[in-house]
Amino acid sequence: MSMNESGGAGLARAAAAPRAAPPPFEMLVSAHGTAVLRVCRAMVGVVDADDVWQETFLAALRTYPTAQKVVNWQAWLVTIARNKSLDHLRRTARVPEPMDTAGDGPLEGGDVVVHAVEAGETAAAVWAALARLPQRQREAVVYHHLVGLPYAEVAALLGNSEAAARRAASDAMAALRALLGGDGKGHGKD
């Protein structure tokens, strides 16, 4: 955990370094393309993620020359990716599973997960497990653990407090460990 914390802080520092002008847009694509892809995949699924990734960067590019006040390009792009993902979900009427109200919680999807694991699709299994999480938990884990945003930025995205964001991520990790078999192959500490 401590490694991750320092990683997040490092990213934030680098992104917040004062610049005279926005860098060439290509630099943003190469520096943050991965983070945006992870957000899109987690939000809309691997298949639709490519389209949403494209929409995200095009939207960013349209407003880019006037985005002078942005201090953290990564957080800015993740915000756009999140909005584009939510738009996409609304458009396709595939509202993210409202797990909070589903009663039995994440373990409900266990069968799908087991299936995927048995098929040897490790990544698919993890995506499936992630998809079973309540949206807020899923987002917290993606923004913090996959993208590397500090909890303060995660809270800003989710519109909650830093403590709540931290709790959501930690609940999510516990749920993922339960879903994927915490001591399974390669799943060590986090």
């Binding site: 892809l37 490519d50 299994a125 993890v126 653990h145 590397g148 993922l176």
Partner: peptide, 29 residues
């Protein structure tokens, strides 16, 4: 971005990203 901070349980998610991004960046330009 640094991969070191990613919990191992989530690590499988990062597979194949490089190829996907190369294709995406090409289409994007």
């Amino acid at each position: 971005m640094s991969e070191t901070g990613i919990p191992q349980i989530l690590a499988p998610l990062t597979g194949g990203e490089a190829a996907a991004l190369a294709a995406l960046a090409g289409h994007f330009s």
